[in-house]
Design a protein around this nucleic acid. Structure first.
Lengths: 268, 268
DNA sequence: AGGCTAAACAGGGA
DNA sequence: CTCCCTGTTTAGCC
C-alpha cells in the first residue's frame, strides 16, 4: 500500500544510499515480476553502476549507468531494505536481491504483486511513460491541475485514483484528501465548481506533503526498516468514529470496486 | 430504418436489374457519404460493368468488375430507386445517382446518414469486414448462434443490435423478435438457459424470414418504389394496445439509448 | 432510426 | 490494496 509519500521518501533514501554503487550479483526468486528472462535481466545489471534514484507516482526510477533504467513498483505493498555488509550476510525474506560490489545489498519483497523492470530509454516503458504528473512535482501547478480536470466526465474518486491522470494517490491517502476538500467521492467531475476544484488541489498537495514530511504511514517501513510517523487519519478507516469536524458518524461505503470512508455531513 | 428484410429484397432486385449494366456517369450531391474524393470515386466507377449484387446485414454489396466493390448502407432510412430511361429524364430527389450506358439510372437518397463506399478487396473495408453473420444465410446455424452467444455477458437487446455479433437486426424488427422469443430486452446473456436461446434463434429466423417473404415493411419502398406488405407488429410500436397473447397492455420502456415495446407479462 | 470513436466502467488474472 | 487487458456501456458526432 505504499503511496506517494512512502515512495517519495524511499526514493530519496535510495538515492542517498545507493548512487555510485556497482551491482555485483542479482538474485531473482520470483521471475514473473521481471519484464525480461532472469538471465537477461541479470546480465543487463551486473557490473553496472547506479546513478540517480527518483520517484514518479508509485514508481521508483534508478538510473543504471550509462544507458539503462531500473523501474520498481511495489504493488499492493512491500519492503525495500538496505542491508549493510554485516546484515547482508543473513538477509530477510526477499523476492529479489541486489548485491553490491562493496558487500552491501538491497532486498526487495512484495506482499502481493510488484514489478522490477529493466529498460533502456524510459519512453519504451508504457507503464511509466503514461503516468500523469505527481502532486509533489513543481509542474503540478493549479493551472496544470485545472487543465487535467477539464473535459473529464468521470467520477471524482475514479479520476483521482487513475495513475494516468495524476500519479501517486492510492486508496489510503485519498480518504483524507477528499475529507479535506469536503467532497464526496462519487461526485462527477463536471459538477465541481471552481471553488471545489481549488479545495481539491489544495487538499491533494497538503495531505501528501504533510504525510511525506512525516516519513509516511506508521505501518510502512523505510529503507532502514523504520516506520513513518503519520498516524492519525481524519476519516480514513475510522468507520463508526466521530467526524473531527462535525461529530457525525463516519461511514464506510462502496464506491465502485473500492471502499470509501466519509463524513456524510461534511463531504457533499 | 431499412433492416435485413428490406435490404435483402433490395439487393435481390438490384442483382436482377443491374448486373451487366455499365456505369456511364456518377453524380454526387453529397460528398461526405463517400470514402473517396468525388473525382476518384467517379473515375473508379465510370465505364465499369456491374457484377453480382448481394446483401450482408444492412449493407448492399455490388461487384464492380473486374476487381472492385461498391458498398451501400442506407443509415437511418433512404430510397434506392431504379429509373428506366424515361424516368431517368426527370429523376426524383437524390444524393447520388448512377447513370448507365443504356440510359437507365439508379437514384440513391438518404433521410439522415448513409454510406456509399468504393473499395478493392472487401477485406480492406473495416465497416463490413467485421460484420457478424446474417440470420438468413445458410451458415447461421443453431450451432453458430450458440457459439456466438457463448461467453457474452452483455444485455440481450444490445448484443442483438450489435452488428459485429449478428448483422441485420435493427430497432424495428427486434421488438417482435423478442416478443416471439418471450424474452425481456434487458435480460443478460448469461442468464439465458438453453431453451430460451433456442426460442431466440427460432424467433430471429422466423421473424426475418416472414418479413422478407412479405417484401418488408409497408412504409418502406423497394427498387421500384413499391411498398412492402409487412403491416402488423405484434408488440412493436403498439404502446397501450393489448398483447396479442395475453391481453396485457403493451408498454414502451427505455432500454439504454433505445426504446422497447414489450408485453410485461409475456416477456420475462 | 445507423454507425463510428473515445471515454467510462466492470470483471478476471498476475 | 496495484496494475493490466478485455469486453461492455454510454455520449457525442457525422
Amino acid at each position: 500500500m505504499p503511496e506517494l509519500p512512502e515512495i517519495w521518501n524511499l526514493a530519496q533514501q535510495m538515492n542517498q544510499a545507493l548512487s555510485g554503487k556497482t551491482i555485483a550479483t542479482v538474485d531473482v526468486r520470483q521471475e514473473k515480476c521481471l519484464n525480461l528472462p532472469p538471465d537477461l535481466f541479470g546480465r543487463g545489471l551486473e557490473n553496472r553502476t547506479l546513478g540517480v534514484t527518483s520517484a514518479k507516482g508509485k514508481w521508483i526510477f534508478t538510473q543504471v549507468l550509462p544507458d539503462r533504467n531500473l523501474l520498481l513498483n511495489l504493488g499492493m505493498g512491500g519492503l525495500v531494505l538496505y542491508l549493510d555488509p554485516e546484515q547482508a550476510k543473513k538477509p530477510p525474506r526477499y523476492r529479489l536481491k541486489f548485491a553490491y560490489s562493496d558487500r552491501s545489498a538491497l532486498a526487495i519483497d512484495f506482499s502481493w504483486f510488484g514489478y522490477v523492470h529493466l529498460v533502456g530509454s524510459l519512453a519504451e516503458h508504457a507503464m511509466t511513460a503514461s503516468l500523469g504528473p505527481s502532486p509533489l512535482e513543481e509542474n503540478f501547478t493549479w493551472d496544470r491541475f485545472h487543465q487535467i480536470l477539464a473535459g473529464r466526465k468521470g467520477i471524482l474518486k475514479s479520476v483521482l485514483l487513475d495513475q494516468h491522470t495524476i500519479s501517486g494517490i492510492g486508496n489510503v491517502y485519498i480518504q483524507d484528501i477528499l475529507f479535506r476538500a469536503r467532497l464526496h467521492p462519487l461526485r462527477k467531475i463536471p459538477s465541481l465548481d471552481e471553488g471545489e476544484r481549488q479545495r481539491l488541489y489544495q487538499a491533494i498537495q497538503q495531505e501528501l506533503q504533510n504525510a511525506t514530511d512525516l516519513g509516511g504511514l506508521i505501518y510502512e517501513r523505510d529503507l532502514y526498516d523504520q516506520p513513518g510517523r503519520f498516524q492519525h487519519f481524519q476519516v480514513g478507516y475510522r468507520e463508526g468514529k466521530p467526524c473531527p469536524g462535525c461529530r457525525s458518524v463516519i461511514v464506510k461505503i462502496r464506491t465502485g470496486s473500492t471502499s470509501s470512508y466519509i463524513c456524510p455531513a461534511c463531504q457533499t
